[in-house]
Design a protein around this nucleic acid. Structure first.
Length: 543
RNA sequence: GCGCCCGUAGCUCAGCUGGAUAGAGCGGCUGGCUUCUAACCAGCAGGUCGCAGGUUCGAGUCCUGCCGGGCGCACCA
C-alpha cells in the first residue's frame, strides 16, 4: 500500500522537476492520519515558494485511483496526510492471523550470511553483568537478522593464548598449594577470586592430593588446561541458562596452532603494508584511517593481540560470510579503526566488519555502587543477577536502552520490587489477551473470520493500527542493530493494550462486537508473542 | 593534548533517514475493582532537550565552538 503511494508521489515529484528527497511515514500523532509526506515542503524549498500552495498543486496532480484512501488533506506547514480506507486495515488484521508466528518476518536479507560475534569473554573468571548485556544485545541482533531473512552464525571467540591465561594458571596453582596446607602467594597480577579456590578443590578431588606435588612447570601447565576447560564450561552453562547459544566457538590459540597468524603476517608483508622499526614489526594502519601505525610483532619476537585478531577475522571472511558484526565493550572502541584499517588493507570490502558497542553496565545495589573487579573477586556475576531478577527481566532490562548508552542496573530495585519492572507490564498484557480466550473457553486459533471495524470503537482501531507497525519495527531494528526499538515498541503496545482492555470489553458484548474483538485480541496476543520471542523473552499465558 | 560515546522531567531513559503541541516508566498528587487478572486504568503536577552560535520553511535530531560525565589514546589483551 505505502509502496504504491510512494511510487505515485515520486512520479509527481518528477513532473515538478527531478528527484527530491521526501519521506512517507506514519505520523507520531494518529490525528494526522495514517501516512504523511513532506514532499510539498521539500519541493517548495527548492522552488522557494509557499509550501502549502505547493501542497495544493501536488495533491491536484496525484492519481490516487489505485490507492485505497479514505481522505487526503493538507495540514500544518504543508504536510499531506493520507487516511487509508478501512479495507486495508481489515486486510492487515487477516495478515497477522494468517502469518501467525511468522508475522513480522521478511526476506529482505535475501539469505545473506552474517556472522555475529559477541560476549567473547576472557576465560579468566565468571561472566559479569557487562557480558550479560553483550549477550542479550548480540543474541537480539542475531535474532533480528534471522527475522529479516539473513542466515546467521552466532560466534564466541576465546582469548586463550595470552599472558593473562598464564597468570590465571599460576594463580590456580597457588590455590592448589594453599588447599593442601602450604603457604603460597598469588603471583603479581594474578587472580584472587574465590572461584579459583573452588576450582582448586574440584581439581584435587578429581586428580587426587598428589596433584599438588607435581613440579611447578608441569603443575601450572596442567592447571592451564584444566582452568580453560572449567571456565569455558561454566561460561557456556551460564549463557545457556540465560537463553543464549552459540553455533561456533573459535579459539585464539587455534589461529596460532593452525598457522593462521604467520600466514596473515606474511600476507601483510607481501602486500607491503608492514615495516620494521626498533626490532618490531609494524602495520601501516595509519594509511587506512587509523591515527597511528600499530605493532604486530614485538621486538621480543612475540605477537601483539592485533596479529591473531587480524588472522581470526580473515578466517571469518574466508568462511564465506557476507557481513560480520562484532559486539564489543565500549572500552575497546579505540580498536575499531585499527582493525578496520587492517582488514581494508588486506582488501576486504569496506563495511564488511561492523562493530556494535555496548557500554559497560554500572551495577548499583540499593543505591550503592558495586565495584566490579575480577582481581579482588568483588563483583556481581551474570548468574547472580538473573537468578535474582529472572532471565526475562534481565534480558528485557539489558535491551531497553541503546547499546551505546550508559546503563544503570539497580539489583536491589529489580530484586525487591519486581512489580515495577517493565517486563511484567508487557508480559501481563500478553497474559490478559490469553485470559480472554481462557474465559471464553476456546482456543485463540479457533477464532476466525473478518473484523467488522464499523461496529468498533476508536480504541479498537488505534490498537489494530499499532499492531500493523510491528514488521517495520523489526526491519528497522535489524538494519540499525538496535534491539531496543523492539522493547520500546513493546512498551507502547502494552500501554495501548491495557488501555484497550479497560475501555473495550470483549466477552458478553453483542455478537458482532465480541467476535471482532476476539479477532483483535488474537492478533494482539500474536504480536506480543512474536516481539517477545525475537528478544528471547517468554510470553506467559497467565501470571 | 588527541579521539570516540553520552548530556532530554526529581530518578532511569525513549524520541524512527530533520517535521506538526518533546514522550514513557519509576517517584509525587487525585480518582477508579458486583463485569474478560488492580502485576491494571483515567487524570494532575513536573522541561531553557548542557551552553552559545550556524544551516533550514522547520533543529532534541545536522555543522562549529565551549562546559560537564564516561572510556580510550602501549612493543597489555
Amino acid at each position: 500500500m505505502s509502496e504504491r503511494l510512494r511510487a505515485e508521489l515520486a512520479r509527481v515529484a518528477g513532473t515538478f522537476g527531478g528527484d527530491v528527497a521526501f519521506t512517507l511515514e506514519r505520523p507520531r500523532d494518529l490525528a494526522h492520519g495514517d501516512l504523511a509526506t513532506n514532499l510539498a515542503m521539500q519541493l517548495a524549498r527548492r522552488e522557494r515558494t509557499n509550501p502549502r500552495a505547493m501542497a495544493e498543486r501536488v495533491v491536484a496532480a496525484l492519481d490516487l485511483s489505485s490507492a485505497r484512501l479514505a481522505s487526503v488533506e493538507i495540514a500544518g506547514p504543508g504536510f499531506i496526510n493520507f487516511r487509508l480506507a478501512a479495507e486495508t486495515l481489515t486486510e492487515d488484521l487477516q495478515r497477522i492471523l494468517t502469518e501467525g508466528a511468522r508475522y513480522g518476518r521478511s526476506q529482505s536479507g535475501q539469505g545473506r550470511r552474517v556472522n555475529v560475534e559477541f560476549v567473547s569473554a576472557n576465560p579468566t573468571g565468571p561472566l559479569h553483568v557487562g557480558h550479560g548485556r553483550g549477550a542479550a544485545l548480540g543474541d537480539g541482533i542475531a535474532a533480528l537478522l534471522e527475522w529479516t531473512g539473513h542466515t546467521v552464525t552466532r560466534e564466541f571467540y576465546v582469548n586463550d593464548a595470552g599472558a593473562q591465561i598464564s597468570r590465571l594458571a599460576a594463580s590456580l596453582w597457588t590455590r592448589i598449594q594453599q588447599a593442601v596446607g602450604r603457604t603460597a602467594e598469588i603471583p603479581e597480577g594474578g587472580y584472587h577470586g574465590d572461584y579459583l579456590k573452588e576450582a582448586a578443590a574440584e581439581l584435587l578431588t578429581r586428580e587426587g592430593a598428589s596433584f599438588a606435588d607435581l613440579d611447578i612447570a608441569t603443575g601450572v601447565a596442567r592447571c592451564r588446561t584444566a582452568v580453560l576447560v572449567l571456565q569455558r564450561a561454566e561460561q557456556d552453562t551460564t549463557l545457556a541458562d540465560f537463553g543464549v547459544h552459540f553455533d561456533v566457538v573459535s579459539s585464539e590459540q587455534w589461529t596460532y596452532d593452525h598457522g593462521d597468524v604467520d600466514a596473515a603476517i606474511t600476507r601483510l608483508r607481501i602486500a607491503g603494508l608492514t615495516f620494521e622499526d626498533g626490532g618490531a614489526l609494524w602495520l601501516r594502519t595509519s594509511s587506512f584511517g587509523d591515527d597511528r601505525d600499530r605493532v604486530l610483532r614485538k621486538s621480543d619476537g612475540t605477537y601483539t593481540y592485533l596479529a591473531p585478531d587480524i588472522a581470526y577475522h580473515l578466517d571469518k571472511f574466508a568462511r564465506g560470510f557476507d557481513h560480520a558484526i562484532d559486539v564489543w565493550g565500549a572500552d575497546h572502541h579505540g580498536y575499531i579503526p585499527r582493525m578496520q584499517a587492517a582488514l581494508t588493507a588486506l582488501g576486504l570490502p569496506a563495511g564488511w566488519l561492523d562493530v556494535a558497542l555496548v557500554q559497560l553496565v554500572r551495577v548499583v545495589r540499593g543505591g550503592e555502587e558495586v565495584k566490579m573487579s575480577k582481581r579482588s573477586g568483588d563483583f556481581v556475576t551474570l548468574r547472580d543477577l538473573y537468578e535474582e531478577t529472572g532471565v526475562d527481566a534481565a534480558r528485557y532490562w539489558f535491551l531497553m536502552r541503546r547499546g551505546d548508552s550508559h546503563l544503570v542496573f539497580d539489583i536491589e530495585l529489580a530484586k525487591s520490587r519486581t512489580d515495577e519492572n517493565p517486563v511484567y507490564y508487557v508480559q501481563m498484557a500478553h497474559a490478559r489477551m490469553s485470559g480472554i480466550f481462557r474465559n471464553a473457553g476456546r482456543a485463540a486459533e479457533d477464532v476466525t473470520g473478518t473484523i467488522a471495524l464499523s461496529v468498533l470503537a476508536v480504541e479498537d482501531v488505534d490498537l489494530l493500527k499499532k499492531l500493523t507497525q510491528f514488521p517495520e519495527i523489526v526491519a528497522r531494528a535489524a538494519i540499525e542493530s538496535e534491539p531496543h526499538r523492539v522493547t520500546t515498541y513493546l512498551d507502547e503496545l502494552a500501554r495501548m493494550s491495557h488501555g484497550w482492555y479497560h475501555a473495550c470489553r470483549v466477552l458478553g458484548e453483542p455478537p458482532e462486537i465480541e467476535h471482532s474483538r476476539l479477532l483483535l485480541a488474537r492478533a494482539t496476543r500474536q504480536v506480543f508473542a512474536n516481539a517477545l520471542t525475537v528478544l528471547g523473552i517468554s510470553a506467559p499465558d497467565r501470571m
